[in-house]
Amino acid sequence: MTQTHQYTELPERAAKAVENFLPREDKIDERARQFSHVKPRDADKEGDTEQLDGVTFTHHFVDVPGDHETVRFHYVETGPESGEAVVFLHGIPDSWFQWHHQMATLSRDQGYRCIAPDLKGYGQSEKKPGDYRHEGAAEQLYGMLKQIGLQQYNLVTHDRGTVQADYIAAHHPESVLRYGRGEQHLYHFNPVLAPQGDIFMDAPYTGIMSDPTRFVCFVYTWITKRPIPDDEFVRVIQEFSYPGITKAVPRYFNSSSFRAEWLDRRNRLLAMWKCPVLIMQGYDSRTQPREFYEKAREYIPNAPDVQVEYMPGGHFWTLESAEETTKAVQKLLKM
Rank of each mutant, 00 (worst) to 15 (best):
R160H: 04
G161D: 07
G161A: 10
T162G: 12
T162I: 04
Q164D: 10
Q164S: 13
A165F: 06
A165N: 08
Y167V: 12
I168P: 02
I168E: 00
A169D: 06
A169T: 09
A170D: 05
H172N: 12
P173N: 10
P173G: 13
E174A: 12
E174G: 15
E174H: 15
E174P: 05
S175Q: 15
V176G: 03
V176P: 04
V176H: 05
R178H: 14
Y179R: 08
Y179W: 02
G180L: 04
R181Q: 09
R181N: 09
R181Y: 06
G182L: 06
G182F: 09
E183C: 07
Q184K: 12
L186G: 07
L186M: 10
Y187N: 06
Y187A: 12
Y187R: 07
H188K: 14
H188G: 02
H188I: 06
H188Y: 11
F189G: 07
F189W: 15
F189Y: 15
F189D: 05
F189A: 08
N190Y: 11
V192C: 01
V192M: 10
V192Q: 13
V192G: 01
P195M: 13
Q196A: 02
D198Q: 13
D198F: 05
I199N: 06
F200E: 03
F200D: 07
F200M: 09
F200R: 02
F200L: 12
M201Q: 11
M201S: 12
M201D: 06
M201E: 13
A203H: 00
A203K: 07
A203Q: 10
P204W: 02
T206K: 03
T206Y: 08
T206M: 05
G207V: 15
I208P: 01
M209E: 09
S210P: 07
S210K: 15
S210Y: 08
S210I: 09
D211Y: 02
P212V: 09
P212F: 12
T213W: 03
C217Q: 03
C217G: 03
C217F: 01
C217Y: 00
T221F: 02
T221I: 01
T221C: 01
W222Y: 09
I223R: 08
I223Y: 03
K225N: 14
K225T: 14
R226P: 00
R226D: 11
R226V: 00
P227T: 10
P227S: 12
I228R: 00
I228V: 13
I228Y: 02
D230M: 04
D230I: 07
E232N: 05
V234P: 06
V234L: 06
R235Y: 08
R235E: 15
R235D: 14
V236S: 00
V236Y: 00
V236Q: 05
Q238S: 14
E239Q: 13
E239L: 10
F240S: 01
S241R: 03
Y242R: 15
G244Q: 03
G244M: 03
I245L: 08
I245S: 01
I245T: 14
K247L: 13
K247W: 05
K247D: 14
A248C: 08
V249A: 07
R251Y: 04
Y252W: 09
F253G: 01
F253S: 06
S255I: 09
S255M: 10
S255T: 10
S256D: 15
S256I: 11
S256L: 12
S256E: 14
S257Q: 12
S257H: 12
F258P: 00
F258Y: 14
R259E: 14
W262V: 08
D264L: 13
D264I: 14
R266L: 12
R266T: 04
R266S: 10
R266G: 01
R266W: 10
